[in-house]
């Protein structure tokens, strides 16, 4: 059971409540056996979750990607990494808690980690600016990534942001320059880079740490040039039409795979990552290690060349006479 249900999860909520009630009376009353009823409801619950989650609309995927109980960076830190040593600061201005950097082990592999962290509770969310980095966040990430290059360690970036923060101070300190510099430098870093969208891949704020050899997405994550709300308010002056915009923007895994923007969709347990964090981590671990093994077989000059070509060919146009 989760504590928070999305609007389209109402039938699941009802059935889970019934199951919980039955269980309670079952434990309080040894004379009557409810186990058959419970079994049946469990089967119904499983079926419901399956049918709902196999047919999610892009807008529903967006809601799952932003689900308050969805695993965020700190969960990966605890459950995907076998250990983690955080490093702080951009050496220029301050430490931006919206981006976390450090060293981690996954199995036998050592990584340099860059990840956007939205924060768990209200206090953390505020401290981490809801995962919306300022320029110093991207500059810290770049510093960590240069260390990775220097010590020949692969980079794993975990993406989960509504976007780079649009504020006065960010503009004063060069938000645009920080993102641009990151795109520029990442394209030439002489070490394998794997990026994984774990929730929201919000525009330039996501791409800034995703110029990678492999870009992966969790099944119920999104990656887009603009949020569906902003798109709707620009096109139709009504953020309430976000559902329609989510449809039009083609921001979910299958579309992005078709457009060759990502290499792989990592499956989530039935009912979304928030229903089984451990199973999610297992899938991520397998996929990341497999991609790294493949990348390690490629020579560095070839890796850089392939990374260039990967982004070079993205785009759709026509050549007319």
């Amino acid at each position: 059971m989760t504590a928070y249900y999305l609007s389209f999860e109402k039938p699941i909520e009802e059935i889970e409540k019934s199951i919980a009630e039955l269980r309670e009376s079952h434990s309080g009353n040894r004379e009557v056996d409810f186990s058959i009823e419970i079994d049946e409801l469990e089967k119904k619950r499983e079926y419901l979750i399956k049918t709902i989650y196999e047919n999610l609309t892009p807008w529903q995927v967006t809601q799952v990607a932003r689900h308050p109980e969805r695993p965020i960076f700190s969960d990966y830190q605890k459950q995907l990494f076998d250990d983690f040593l955080e490093i702080h600061g951009d050496r220029l201005f301050r430490d931006d808690p919206a981006i976390v950097t450090g060293f981690a082990r996954i199995g036998n592999e050592k990584f340099v980690i860059v990840g956007e962290d939205k924060g768990k509770d209200t206090k953390e969310k505020i401290r981490r600016n809801f995962g919306m980095p300022n320029p110093e966040g991207y500059r810290k990430a770049m510093r960590a990534m240069r260390l990775a290059e220097k010590f020949k360690k692969p980079i794993l970036s975990l993406i989960d942001t509504a976007g780079a923060y649009p504020g006065i101070e960010g503009e004063e300190r060069g938000q645009a320059e920080a993102i641009a510099r990151s795109l520029f430098e990442m394209s030439g870093l002489k070490t394998p880079i794997i990026s994984l969208v774990i929730g929201e891949g919000g525009s330039g704020g996501a791409l800034a740490i995703a110029v990678a050899d492999r870009v992966l997405m969790l099944q119920n994550s999104i990656y887009s040039v603009i949020s569906p709300e902003s798109c709707a308010s620009i096109l139709w002056r009504d953020a309430g039409l976000a559902e329609r915009a989510a449809e039009a923007l083609k921001m979910t895994g299958p579309n992005l795979l078709k457009l060759k923007v990502i290499e792989e969709i990592i499956p989530e347990p039935m009912g979304g990552a928030h229903r089984d964090t451990a199973a999610t981590m297992k899938n991520v671990r397998t996929s990341v290690l497999r991609h790294l093994a493949e990348l390690k077989r490629i020579s560095t000059p070839k890796l850089i060349q392939k990374r260039y070509e990967r982004f070079r060919r993205l785009g759709a146009f026509e050549i007319v006479k």
Binding site: F184, Y223, I226, L235, L259, V261, R312, L314
Partner: peptide, 26 residues
């Protein structure tokens, strides 16, 4: 800014042009 109507492909142009400039600089 980016052309919304081309979705993610317009975002990718940021990486593409920046990577080309890295080559020019190198």
């Amino acid at each position: 800014g980016a052309r919304m109507h081309e979705g993610i492909l317009s975002l990718m142009q940021m990486a593409k042009t920046s990577a080309a400039l890295k080559r020019l600089s190198d």
